[in-house]
Simulated scan of single mutants.
Amino acid sequence: MKSALLNPVLNKEIRLRFRSAKSFLGIAAYLGILGLISLGFIGMTLSFDYAGVFRPEESRSMFLMISMLQLALVIFITPGLTAGVISSERERQTLPILLTTAQSSSSIILSKLASSLSYLLLIVFASAPLYMIVFLFGGISPVSILASFALYVFTMLVVGSIGVLMSTLIRRTILAMVTTYSVAFFLTGGIAVIAMMLTNFNYAYYSQGTDYIWPYVFASVNIPVMFFSVFEGSVVQELQTMAGTSFSPWITFFIFYGVIIAGCLLIAVRKLRPRMKTKGKPAEKMG
């Protein structure tokens, strides 16, 4: 495992990504946008408050807005960083050279994924000081902040593994990127819309005294819904009441996406190296 993560491929990718001035300009722009949004939210809130006081519940609303915005940015940026890690090597005709090195397929895939997500991790954790504004006014607990950052990392792994898989299976970077965006948007926005539509039928089942499990199923595998439930615990309770079960949707969430992460990476590793077909009968063993 150590050789799969600490290898020349990972070192090269990280050096190329972090030595560029565009990378640090991107981080500065990202933090500047989040900072302006935070200050704008505080300014608008104070302008509509006659006492000119920024209350803890308003600080909590600001934290929720910034967190959901950052989650959307993570989902939007990750495919662009991961969907071309293998296909771009194939387009530059450097993939055969990479495959002739001593690095295994798992080492190459994991290194490409780690180097792509490392830049996004730096962006997300660089925004941590902005979240400290919340502690000046109260309204949110440190546990919620840690949980939100943990879900950011988990979301990166989910979308990043899908991007690496599409980059391995699809030869063109543009097609791989479009496919990754389509899958990521379906897992986030598409499933959320389906869960909301199914929730509208809850009253018909409730009036008949029967359980209605489908909104629970779709909501428990939707990243934004489960992320929102970190701050609004009543969402989970409502889903459990609707389905008539005490089974935590978080277990379903992590099992579902854990299988996706493992499956995508395993398929990418197996499909990275083309299987060479030999003509005629295989050579007989000597001896």
Rank of each mutant, 00 (worst) to 15 (best):
G43K: 10
L136W: 05
E91N: 12
Q237E: 15
I33G: 07
L169A: 12
M65T: 12
M44L: 15
Y216K: 09
G258S: 12
S234L: 05
T101S: 10
A51M: 14
V74G: 05
F185K: 01
S104W: 00
G80M: 11
I162L: 14
I174P: 01
G84I: 03
L272I: 03
L113K: 09
F135I: 09
I123D: 00
L136N: 11
I75S: 04
M196I: 11
L113M: 15
L266I: 12
S148Q: 06
I27P: 00
W214C: 01
T278N: 08
S115D: 04
V236P: 02
T168S: 05
S47E: 13
Q93I: 05
L71Q: 13
G163F: 08
I37F: 09
M197E: 10
A243G: 10
P282G: 02
L117C: 10
R55Y: 14
M226A: 02
K12Y: 08
Q237N: 09
Q103Y: 08
M196R: 11
A150W: 05
K271C: 10
W214G: 02
L175F: 02
L117F: 03
L34M: 08
S38F: 03
E232T: 15
N200I: 13
I133G: 10
S67G: 13
F137R: 08
Y152F: 15
T155Y: 13
G233M: 07
V221P: 00
L95W: 06
F41H: 04
L71P: 07
L95P: 03
L151Q: 08
F125Q: 06
Q240T: 05
R273M: 08
F254G: 03
V230D: 04
I261G: 02
W214I: 13
I97Y: 15
Q240L: 07
M1C: 06
Y206K: 10
G26L: 06
G139V: 07
